[in-house]
Amino acid sequence: MSGANFSKKFIFNEKIDSDYLYSLYEDDYQYIEEIFQTTLAHFDEDYNSIRTAYESNNLLELKKAIHKIKPTFGFVGLPLVQHICKEFEDQCQRAGSSNDLKTEYQQIVTTLAASKDLIATEYNKLKEFNSNFL
């Protein structure tokens, strides 16, 4: 969001779609750091909502919780994870009970947890980069 002329100096983890990130924020690394920070600050609450809804067999809340967290991943350059969330949201719509989603649920919580670790790692790298170079 900083201007038209920018250079891609920071090297993101290959799992992060850096082109996608730059399309949103250009090379405003400080703002990208803020985005990652905000995401991490709210991640556990949203993640726990998913777990609570699943464990209480509340499919409507499960669908709502996954819907809420879904775009988060787009904002941090993980559009594929956003798409995986969309698929799980669709599966919640079709399922009759939490048991119908046992395998898919295990996969999605694993994906979300791994994504959080990745976001946290990138956040720390960005923070260091920004403090050293900006």
Binding site: M1, L24, Y31, E34, I35, T38, T39, A41, H42, K68, I69, P71, T72, F75
Partner: peptide
């Protein structure tokens, strides 16, 4: 907007405009 990161981004877009 209930997603904080989306609200912050939107506010930033508004400010930039």
């Amino acid at each position: 907007e209930d997603l904080q990161v989306a609200a912050d981004y939107l506010a930033k877009c508004c400010e930039k405009s």
